[in-house]
Simulated scan of single mutants.
Amino acid sequence: MDDITRQALATACGVLAAVFIALLMGLQEPYWAALSVMIIANVDREALFTKGVLRVGGTLIGVLGGYYVGQWAEGFDAMQIVLVAIAAAVGTYGRQRSAYGYAWFYGALTFMLVLLYTMTQPDQLYAFAHYRCYEIVIGVVCGTLASWALGPNAGELHARLKAQAAATSAPNAERQSLIAGLGAFTIVVIWSLFDLPQLPQVLISSLIVVDSDPLATRHRGAQRIFGCIIGGTAGLVVILVDATHLWWWAVMLFLGVFSFARIHLRKSAEAYIGTQSAIAYLVTLVGAGPPVSLYPPVDRLIGIVIGVSIMTVLVWALNPPKLAGRSA
């Protein structure tokens, strides 16, 4: 069995374990545990371990910061929107310039999500912050242990952080961070005016596609929408065949993640389609157990498409063609 297949198998096992642990613990959104397994998946053990540690660290810092700042800013809508925009800009800059950019990005992202709860569901702020920590930690632990047990070079521990070089120059990172901040500001304002579905999914999807290379952002945006359609459609088909049967749901969850993870783990131009297909598949299939309605997963999928579309348009509009050409 080649390394990619072994890691895809480990990823599928990790996702299944994380989902069932989260369900047994009664956590609010088990799909966050599943997403954490998928997002840190990597054939390189050191890269997987690094992403896991930085994801947990960034999440804890973001939760704490968002919780206390959110309480302080509760009721001041304009201030909350500005804080969300600043966090988006800082997280994007840190992601592109820091040796541990993953922690900066997910710290800022979690901060924003917790802060948004003070705008939408302030009475559930503590529960959201509390459960989010558990969901992310469970996903990272399950993904790491599954890789160590079943992935390439099984049994070998690689518990070292792997620093990364800056992805781009400081001026370009500043430009992309300003676009990310403006995009986050625009999305929250549009959401408040038109009552868009699934604001967290809209915001997450928009920021993930912002790349240090403007041309890559356009490419990733198109791949994200395409992958969303593939993964979301596959998930909806599974639901339509038999939405409530636990064994059918679990088996198809495993097979779907395994298949999409094999694409995600390849070093190819289409790898990101596999990443997004897996994310959309998980978001569609994983709720508080097997889905009983099509409405929540469809809402989440709509949120992903809206977020990517808004941010992609801003990147096209605010990155001059000459700059995009030089960044390629």
Results as ranks from 00 to 15, higher is better:
A167H: 05
I187M: 15
A271N: 15
C142N: 03
T275V: 15
A288P: 03
L196R: 06
R220T: 14
S205V: 08
F226A: 14
D123S: 12
S192G: 07
A10R: 00
V209G: 05
I204H: 11
G62F: 02
G183F: 00
L236Y: 02
L16A: 08
Y93S: 06
C133K: 10
R218M: 10
V82D: 13
A47Y: 11
A146H: 03
K51P: 13
G151T: 09
A85L: 07
L265H: 03
V189Q: 09
G58E: 03
T284N: 00
I310P: 01
V292S: 15
V315K: 01
P297Y: 07
L35Q: 05
V140A: 08
H158G: 07
L215W: 10
T186C: 11
L150E: 06
W72A: 15
F111D: 00
I21A: 05
L182A: 13
A146I: 01
F258K: 07
I273Q: 05
H158D: 11
A127I: 13
G151F: 01
D213T: 11
S206E: 04
G303Y: 04
D195Q: 11
Q276A: 15
L109Y: 09
G26W: 00
V15H: 00
S36T: 11
I61H: 03
A149P: 12
L35K: 03
R224H: 04
I190C: 15
E46A: 12
L109V: 13
V84E: 04
A280G: 05
R97D: 07
H219D: 13
I225S: 00
M311T: 05
P291R: 05
A173V: 09
V237L: 15
A73I: 06
M79S: 14
R160Y: 14
T50M: 07
K51V: 04
R224V: 02
V63I: 07
L294P: 04
T284V: 02
A88Q: 15
A12K: 08
T118H: 12
S205N: 04
A88I: 06
F185S: 05
L255T: 13
Y67F: 14
M119Q: 09
A149K: 08
L314K: 08
